[in-house]
Write a protein that binds this DNA or RNA. Structure first.
Ligand SMILES: [Mn+2]
Ligand SMILES: [Mn+2]
Ligand SMILES: [Zn+2]
Ligand SMILES: [Zn+2]
Lengths: 182, 182
DNA sequence: CCCCTAATTTACAATCATTCGCAATAAAAC
DNA sequence: GTTTTATTGCGAATGATTGTAAATTAGGGG
């Protein structure tokens, strides 16, 4: 569910989580609590796969099974606590769902997967309007801009690039935490 | 590559396809030609998986292997002839890439997968602007609005719905061909 | 036309993310 | 505490997609 309050999920505590879980007939478990807390303490701009979350928690000594990670991520995405993203990599990524005005979108290079976040309020308005027009309840609204680094283009993309070729921009990591204004 | 000419892909014929394939060191094969023609003759609003394309062509007596379908769809998406869509179903969908002003976006119910297309010119402008700002080459730009039918909400979503429950709206098919104006 | 070479197709195996089945465990309602 | 039923964890299963290697074919140059 798209959250329209002005507060971030950081202020969403254990009691709130329990309440919201109970509302839909679910229970608060240590696993669910830890997973949500983990996302709440993650720096902005991280987009993690289920496997990423699994490894990160395991390193902290938490031993939550991968199945449970998958189940929890899906549940929390449905509940609107997390956002499920389809970037360009063959697996889903998750981030904390930050309501308006922190709601944002993604620009991603299909070659190096570098991902840049940006905000744009009119897009959310479009989503609200379209859902209302069709009589549906809005859950999320994501503009994904697929792009390609000029370095890759010069090397012959969209033909196959040499399998060992890595986009130089990928070196800064595949994710930037900077949210640029529209 | 995002195509900005005013013509639809319908007017993209065999010679054009050959030329564009040769430009990137690829060959024109009967398989590729048939797959593109298939999409060019598909009614607006269809979003097909690789398996869908495979079955449809097979029914027409064309025997193209599933592997080839996968590879061709990916190649043509890279070339900008097709658009690769991440709707809500666990597999990719493809449609003919219609350049501006036919460029459109999708509103999809995460329960019944009903998909509604709509146009909005300002979103494409946003995509162009963001890609330029970051110095990347724009490929595609898709607003995907995730929503839920009120019928599903009333039945308890986001808790698990009875496994046999089907959204009544799914009966009209999961896709509508109508493009509504923004 | 014919030849040559590299691109492509094909059948099939393999991979990878994700889900499922089920016995064991543990919330939370009473 | 007891009971109920959601949840976990494990391994197996699934399903979309990709890889492999041999056979085929497109298309450029004679
Ligand atoms: Mn993000
Ligand atoms: Mn469409
Ligand atoms: Zn790149
Ligand atoms: Zn629905």
């Amino acid at each position: 569910m798209l959250r329209t309050e002005g507060l971030g999920m950081q202020l969403y505590d254990t009691a709130d989580l329990r309440a919201e879980l109970h509302q839909i007939g679910c229970r608060l478990t240590p696993q669910r609590e830890k997973i949500l807390k983990f996302f709440q303490n993650l720096p902005q701009g991280n987009h993690l796969s289920a496997e990423d979350v699994y490894q990160a928690l395991r390193q902290r000594g938490e031993n939550i099974s991968l199945s449970t990670i998958y189940r929890s991520l899906k549940l929390m995405a449905r509940m609107g606590l997390l956002r499920e993203l389809e970037l360009a990599e063959g697996h889903k990524h998750y981030e904390l769902n930050q309501p308006y005005p922190h709601h944002h979108h993604h620009l991603v290079c299909v070659q190096c997967n570098r991902t840049i976040e940006f905000t744009n309020t009119s897009i959310l308005k479009t989503g609200i309007k379209q859902a209302e027009k069709e009589g549906l309840h809005l859950l999320d609204c994501q503009l994904t801009i697929h792009a390609i680094c000029p370095e890759a283009l010069r090397r012959g993309w969209p033909s196959l690039l040499p399998s060992n070729w890595v986009c130089p921009r990928a070196l800064n990591g595949t994710v930037t935490g900077v949210i640029t204004q529209n």
